[in-house]
Nucleic acid binder design. Structure first.
Length: 374
DNA sequence: TCAATTTGACCACT
DNA sequence: AGTGGTCAAATTGA
């Protein structure tokens, strides 16, 4: 963990340098792109390291340094949030996200699968969730099919139920609860989900919630997820993903998302003719006309999520959801992501002389080389 | 009015 | 028989 702190400072310095030189780089998108990629790479490494440390912490090691790091970042982020009008409330101790992957093996009991299949993310700088999924031979979600026993087919049933999907891959993630807003709500992951059930689980203090993709009806999207709080830490959600989103594949589908939750934090910046388009680490179900900047990098660092105070472009979060921000899902979405204009303004708006947002974010740190230029 | 959530019941699975 | 996943009617809210 000790080595993470200098890395974090390094990443912050890179971001600050970019901000400082931005006026000179307006006509050099290539340099901006390269610099941005470098920043992302650094923070990605930090995230991986912290996730690994967090995993170790869960199994018993000290989290003092993480808390110290978290405090340092948290102070700056809180100031920034205040400056950008975000609502801050209910701050509590959170633990940065821990990523697991479970490749389910057949003919094993659920509990044994949970233990045997769980893989700690490798401590390699740039390995993403996608790598883990692919290397484990993840299968398509088409396996989530309706199976009816031959003997059952003769029975007169009031309704047909899908067979429990015990054989398909599932991905288990542990994510920190949002530190703001409704703590009862599960963390957002960029997709819109519809809750279809809740169940008390034996041995669990908290009930398990069942969600399926909002677009299941229209696009036959089989993606599902289960969300459950941990017994010993109610601020950590264990999210189990099943099935792969197919809703974004349809030409008429509302999203053109390229990466799935299962495919992990392959964050990148895509500069387009219209400006900067940032790809949320856990994909997006956003229409192409909406540009968002995920706060995942910060959330993964500290378990921080942000409620956007700006409502522009907030409709059609899922494209099909004509109710836009009316539904709880959409509301939760805003707990998680910011419109890119806000974040871009915060990070790159060199004209904001009165309030330098980047300085607010990292105000508690002394930069090792340069003082802030007025 | 319509979509999302809640919740009791049903049913697959072990 | 117990547990967990899903269904669907009822309820809620915009």
């Amino acid at each position: 963990m000790e080595e993470t702190l200098p890395l974090l400072y390094h990443g912050c310095k890179l971001a600050k340098d970019l901000e400082k030189n931005l006026p000179n780089l307006v006509n050099n998108p290539e340099i901006i792109l390269k610099s941005s990629e470098e920043i992302i790479s650094v923070f990605s490494r930090i995230k991986d390291k912290i996730s690994l440390e967090q995993m170790r912490g869960i199994v018993g090691e000290s989290q003092e340094l993480q808390q110290q790091l978290g405090h340092d970042i948290d102070v700056g982020i809180r100031q920034w949030l205040k400056s950008s009008g975000a609502v801050l409330s209910g701050l509590h101790q959170v633990t940065p996200g821990v990523t697991f992957h479970e490749h389910v093996l057949e003919h094993e009991s659920t509990s044994s699968r949970m233990i045997k299949g769980m893989q700690l993310q490798k401590e390699e700088p740039d390995i993403g969730f996608r790598d883990i999924v692919e290397s484990s031979g993840g299968r398509a979600s088409g396996e989530m099919q309706l199976l009816i026993n031959a003997s059952d087919s003769n029975r007169i049933l009031p309704r047909q139920r899908k067979r429990k999907d015990s054989g398909s891959d599932k991905i288990v993630k542990r994510v920190a609860a949002p530190i703001m807003g409704n703590l009862e709500l599960p963390p957002e992951d960029g997709y819109t989900w519809r809750k279809y059930g809740q169940k008390e689980i034996m041995g669990s203090t908290y009930p398990r919630s069942y969600y399926r993709c909002t677009h299941q009806k229209f696009y036959d999207c089989p993606a599902k997820k289960q969300v459950q709080r941990l017994n010993n830490d109610p601020f950590i959600f264990e999210v189990t993903y099943r099935g792969t989103h197919t809703c974004h594949m349809s030409s008429t589908a509302p999203s053109a998302a390229a990466s799935l939750p299962e495919q992990g934090p392959t964050s990148f910046i895509d500069t387009t003719a219209t400006g900067i388009q940032l790809q949320p680490p856990f994909s997006t179900s956003l229409p192409a006309t909406t540009h968002w900047l995920s706060m995942q990098v910060f959330q993964d660092l500290r378990g921080v999520s942000v409620r956007s105070a700006v409502a522009s472009s907030d409709t059609e979060v899922a494209g099909v959801d004509s109710r836009g921000g009316a539904g709880p899902s959409a509301v939760r979405f805003h707990d998680y992501q910011l419109p890119v204009v806000d974040m871009a303004d915060a990070m790159f708006n060199s004209n904001s002389s009165s309030s330098n947002s980047m300085d607010l974010i990292f105000s508690d740190h002394k930069w090792d080389s340069e003082e802030k230029k007025d």
